[in-house]
Amino acid sequence: MPGRQDDVIPPQVELIYGRGLEYLAKSQNDRGCWNDNTGTEPGVVGLCVAAFLAHGEDPNTGPYAGVIGKALEYILSEQNQTNGYIGNNMYSHCFATKALAESYGMVDNPKIAPALRKAIDLILSAQKRNNFKAWRYTPESKDADTTVTGGQMVTLFAARNAGLEVPDEAIKNGLAFLNKCRTDDGSIGYTSAIGGKPSLTAIGVLCHCLAKEPVTKGYEKSLSFLKKNLEFRDRYYPYYYEYYMSQALFHASDEAWQEWNASNIRYMGALQTRDGSFPGNQGEAFSTAGALLSLALNYRYLPIYEK
């Protein structure tokens, strides 16, 4: 695995992460998903898979191999064999597909490769049909928003890292939509350049970095906006915000990420419950996976978490 171990992992991160993985392992059901209110969604199961892989867990012979294997089988069982769609919305589809991409080449399961290709093809075909050459809630959506678009973009980067062919045009069109939603102060809005938020701006900055695009004035304004909002916390979408903010800052600014990471370690340490889970209105599986993944940049095992 490509983990970078030249930096010392903060002991509190290892404590939080280890307890979180134990919770996810113990609370997984026999079907491979979780019983809380979003834990049966393939996308949430995909985030849980990513949380294990991002810690460097061996998906074939490690102590959590069974957990990872059952979760992947659940994702595969939820895929429509005709069109490749996983779940019932594009949020779920992208995070489930991303887990397949991160498992591809690592997990000894011959079903992953064809399922991944089908899932990526659906993302690409949905974009082609979209009026904005971006994405929204369903493969047939004609409108677009930055959260769904960002999720598909990150998944395409993960697939590209896994060796799948992803057209440059798909990346350029997705970035163009995100850039159109940038407001005057550098923040990024939901469906247009209105009402920018730190969470949406983090998505835009991350996609720009993963695409390895040249620095532009717009990007610099967006990064500056994030740096001014390092203390921000999203009450409505907890863990989803931290998931993207940590990745965006890690790729964009080492100094900003170091400051953010130190604060996030304290924040997550205070939020974690006695059983290792994290509370949230989307259920403990999503909350715990999101919280752990916001700390996963400390490990850098997944290719998408490397610079």
Rank of each mutant, 00 (worst) to 15 (best):
Y267M: 10
M268K: 12
N83V: 09
L175N: 00
D6Y: 15
N88A: 10
S92V: 03
A158R: 05
N80H: 13
G43I: 01
D36T: 03
T201C: 05
E306H: 15
K228A: 15
C94H: 08
W135Q: 04
L124I: 08
L292I: 06
I265T: 09
L53H: 11
A113V: 00
Q28R: 04
M90C: 12
A170Y: 11
D30S: 15
R235G: 10
T82A: 10
N261Q: 13
T155D: 03
A25F: 05
S27V: 12
R31W: 07
S246H: 13
E306K: 15
P303C: 15
G105V: 04
M153L: 07
R182Q: 14
R300T: 13
P303Q: 11
W257H: 05
E14P: 01
E140C: 08
P110T: 05
A252V: 09
E22H: 15
I9M: 08
A162G: 08
L175Q: 01
G84D: 03
Q81E: 11
G39H: 02
G69K: 08
L206E: 12
T288I: 01
L292E: 05
P63R: 15
L297T: 08
P42Y: 02
S125A: 08
G151R: 02
G189W: 11
K228W: 13
L210V: 04
Y237H: 09
P10D: 15
Y17V: 04
L297V: 06
D30Q: 13
S141P: 14
F250H: 06
A176D: 08
A159K: 06
I86C: 06
D30G: 03
A126P: 07
K217G: 06
I194T: 11
T191A: 07
A252S: 10
L47G: 01
P139N: 13
R266I: 10
I304Q: 06
T149A: 01
P139M: 13
Y91H: 07
G105F: 11
A144F: 05
I188E: 02
M106E: 11
P114S: 02
A193H: 09
S253A: 10
S103W: 05
Y64M: 14
A256N: 12
F278S: 04
